[in-house]
Computed example of a mutant assay.
Amino acid sequence: MNSVIRATCGVDAEGRVTFGLPLPEPGSAHLLLKARPRKGVPAPAARRLPLEPSGDGRALAVLEPLPPLEEGRWDAFLVREPDAEPQQLAAGTLDLRVLVDGARLDRPSPVAVRIPYRALDGFLAVRAWLRPAHAETDRIGVADRTTTVTARLHGTELGEGAVVRLRGRGGGAERTVRPSTDGDGRGFGFTVGHAELVGGDGTDVRYWDVDVVPAADAAPVRVGRVLDDVADRKQSFVYPAVRTGGRLVRPYYTVDNDLSFEVTDPG
Rank of each mutant, 00 (worst) to 15 (best):
G92T: 06
H30F: 13
P42M: 04
V249I: 01
T244W: 04
T146C: 02
E52T: 13
D258W: 12
L60M: 12
D95H: 12
V142D: 07
G170N: 08
A151Y: 03
E81I: 01
V205K: 00
D144T: 12
C9H: 00
W74Y: 09
L69F: 06
R233S: 03
A173F: 09
D184N: 13
A173P: 12
G267C: 09
T137M: 03
V149D: 08
D144E: 13
A151C: 10
D138V: 10
S180I: 11
D83A: 15
S54T: 13
F123C: 05
D209I: 13
Y253H: 07
P266D: 13
R6Y: 15
V111Q: 10
P266H: 07
G161Y: 03
S180A: 15
F188R: 00
D209H: 12
R104M: 06
V210H: 04
A7F: 01
T137C: 13
V192S: 05
G27F: 00
I140M: 02
I5E: 11
S109A: 13
P26C: 09
K39M: 11
E136G: 04
F261L: 05
K34A: 15
T156E: 10
S109E: 08
D229P: 00
D265K: 07
V62L: 12
P214A: 06
A128V: 06
T93G: 06
D256R: 04
A135I: 07
P110K: 10
S3F: 09
R178L: 15
R247K: 15
V226I: 15
A13Y: 07
V79R: 00
S180Q: 14
R6A: 15
V226S: 12
T156V: 04
Y253G: 01
R97E: 10
R145C: 04
H30N: 07
S28N: 10
G168S: 02
A91F: 00
N2M: 07
L32K: 08
G57S: 02
N2A: 11
E85S: 12
N257K: 11
R175D: 03
A133L: 08
T254H: 12
R222Q: 15
K34D: 08
D121H: 05
R6S: 14
Q235K: 08
G193N: 03
A173T: 11
S180G: 14
R104F: 13
V79G: 09
R186Q: 05
V111G: 09
G161R: 05
